[in-house]
Design a binder for these strands. Structure first.
Lengths: 218, 218
DNA sequence: ATTACTAGTAGACGAGTAA
DNA sequence: TTTACTCGTCTACTAGTAA
């Protein structure tokens, strides 16, 4: 993403463009970005083109609001700053165990994934995943984790079905090695999937609703 | 500050350029910034020129490190992001009361300041300041406060002496209105000066070493 | 391998201005 | 007042290349 775009997005966000439309003329934006009214007008058209903002072009002044894509873009940069200034090497997530739908099991068992897990995580996962609902106050930590490099798990096609890529982040639960799997272009939610060499429910004697602390390496 | 510069600074910081020198060729930086080796080399020269980085140009690969100015630049942007994504309207600082040197009293009593406090804060300060040593874990909150607009107190010259400008941030201590004063271009430290309509030590029955909670409006 | 110069070019910017 | 077009200039980039 071009830094010119996020720079403009940030100024709009500071004026409240994340919550709601803000009245912002191209001259005002130009002043904030230290550029001419003409260039600011052009920048706004570019941001619209990239679908980073939406606009309500009223009779007198336009009103501008960030799109979800625009907000994600800023969150990504915010995550980078948090990694620069905050991160100590690990992030601790808190959450509760949730029911899996059996989907995790299906995916993990695919050879295309299994081989990569073994190579990149250093263990062969138990054939299933543990689903954890992350506490509301820790959801923003997921953004930091998403912005960390992690281990890339590449997608593949098998029997005419395509399996998407993901990023695995090495983690520990009560000192047991595991990894949280974040699918590429997933809809951000507060449920994470965990793979581990062992059957975590049995090994840790835990079940649905039990609270858990996950230390994610970043 | 040009967004091109902070974009490059951020990538260098992510590689550890805040703590120490990082080995970073112009080609590697070019890849990270999605530009050519030639342009990255030019960018590095510009950053050096702006004194945002320092460099150790070894025989094979150069080593780069952010200067204090470069770090401050990133912190400022980080503060903007925190204002976008975190701030609820107030920041709570914790600290302990420290001995003033009587300097605060001298400055506050200057008419040039007193009149501005009265106009911009809505109260006439007691003729003295309360010095508070901010807890180590809250020092980063000062960066956020510094990046918030606040009330500008302009400098002036009197009797041939010049008095610098400052930013006042309206605050409350145990629901009593006050303001923390941050001098312009001060050396960042962990001691803040507080002005208040009342004599805080007497009104709150507090003294040196007592702990305090300050709610700063942002 | 590096870094970084020069030269040529594409793109960004602002002035003027229309709607 | 607005937004945003065209157009000329000038900056910023990359390719080629030297050291």
């Amino acid at each position: 993403m071009d830094s010119k775009y996020t720079f403009a997005l940030r100024k709009i966000a500071l004026l409240g463009g994340i919550e709601d439309y803000v009245v912002l003329s191209s001259r005002e934006l130009g002043d904030a970005l230290e550029m001419s009214q003409q260039s600011a007008s052009k920048r706004i058209l570019e941001l619209l083109d990239e679908k980073l903002i939406i606009r309500d072009l009223g009779a007198r002044k336009q009103r501008i609001k960030l799109t979800q894509k625009g907000i994600e873009e800023l969150k990504q940069e915010y995550g980078e700053y948090r990694r620069i200034f905050e991160i100590s090497d690990q992030i601790t997530l808190h959450g509760a165990i949730a029911d899996g739908m059996g989907e995790g099991r299906y995916y993990v068992c695919q050879m295309g994934y299994m081989a990569q897990f073994e190579e990149k995580l250093g263990f062969r996962p138990y054939e299933g995943t543990l689903n954890v609902v992350v506490d509301r106050e820790d959801v923003s930590k997921l953004d930091i984790i998403r912005s960390a490099p992690g281990e890339a798990i590449t997608g593949f096609t098998q029997d005419g079905r395509s399996f998407g890529g993901a990023i695995a982040h090495k983690s520990k639960i009560r000192n047991i090695e595991c990894a949280i799997i974040i699918p590429e272009r997933s809809h951000y939610d507060n449920v994470i999937e965990i793979v581990c060499q062992y059957h975590l429910r049995r090994t840790l004697s835990i079940g649905n609703g039990d609270r858990l602390e996950i230390k994610v390496k970043v």
